[in-house]
Design a binder for these strands. Structure first.
Lengths: 148, 148
DNA sequence: TACTTTTGCTTGCGAAACAAAAGTAATAAT
DNA sequence: ATTATTACTTTTGTTTCGCAAGCAAAAGTA
């Protein structure tokens, strides 16, 4: 499962990792939809097939973008959590959000609006930090309490 | 060549358009590597196959992200240029650049550094505007002078 | 004017990625 | 002990990708 890089360009190299239909969707689900178990992901709106999910999670783990951990009192359920490298993708997710709001809505009639879009645009940096701090707080809880 | 949107999520909808191996690479080549003809693209480092290139250009045109125009004094060579919708992808390209510099370099030993990365990080917004203004100036020239 | 090259594609075919459904093995709940 | 849940794997397609070749129109050259 080794990544092949097409050339020396940093942007193209980023897309060698992120440039597919699912990787950034999975990151988004973890970051802002609170998904962290295999089952969480299978139940999302995007309806990813389980074989694709398994292979993408493995790939993300190998790249150091997520970690897979077991909880002490549950040997079945694995927790998939973003690393710092994964959290660092937040600005990209936010920019995708903004571009989509302004340029994709006209093409997708059923697209919902994000209520935070105005805040997001007016103060991008604090919004990014907010999402990241929020995520860190949540995974702290998840590990301590073993909650769903 | 109609796009199918997976769900109502704005981010996922953006990735229904941008989430593949080539779309953002082509945008990057136009935006910062000055590529604008079919031949320009085929000669790039990434070495895209011509059938993929043709289909992606068509798709981008249909989505209103690029335009295809002929020059008055050259009936053979088409010019592919970014629309405002395409130019609005600049922040995403810049964020990919930054994430790559910090997180992909360790995985791709042959990756080159961008000399502008420091400027990019220190003043993101002006850098984005600079790229966009630069592009607009260039296409103005290209249309007036019909230069290579 | 004829010829050669360039440009912008299309076609055909094999390989890889993606997708739907079913199956499995380990664990947890009843 | 039985059933359900979770996290996968396997199987069987389908779609996308990628290479090589081919081709037609326009442009350049003799």
């Amino acid at each position: 499962m080794d990544i092949k890089f097409r050339c020396q360009c940093p942007i193209t190299s980023a897309l060698d990792i992120l440039g597919d239909k699912w990787i950034l969707v999975i990151i988004k689900q973890m970051l802002i939809e609170d998904k962290k178990t295999f089952k969480d992901f299978t139940e999302s709106d995007e309806a990813i097939a389980t074989n694709i999910l398994a292979s993408k999670l493995k790939c993300l783990e190998e790249l150091g973008i997520i970690t897979k951990t077991q909880l002490p009192d549950n040997k079945k359920t694995n927790l998939y959590l973003l690393t710092e490298k994964g959290l660092a993708l937040t600005p990209i997710i936010v920019e995708l959000s903004i571009w989509s709001d302004e340029n994709v809505r006209e093409l997708n009639s059923i697209m919902r609006d994000s209520p935070e879009i105005a805040i997001m645009k007016s103060d991008k940096n604090t919004f990014i930090k907010m999402i990241q701090e929020n995520y860190k707080a949540k995974i702290g809880l998840a590990i301590k309490n073993d909650n769903k």
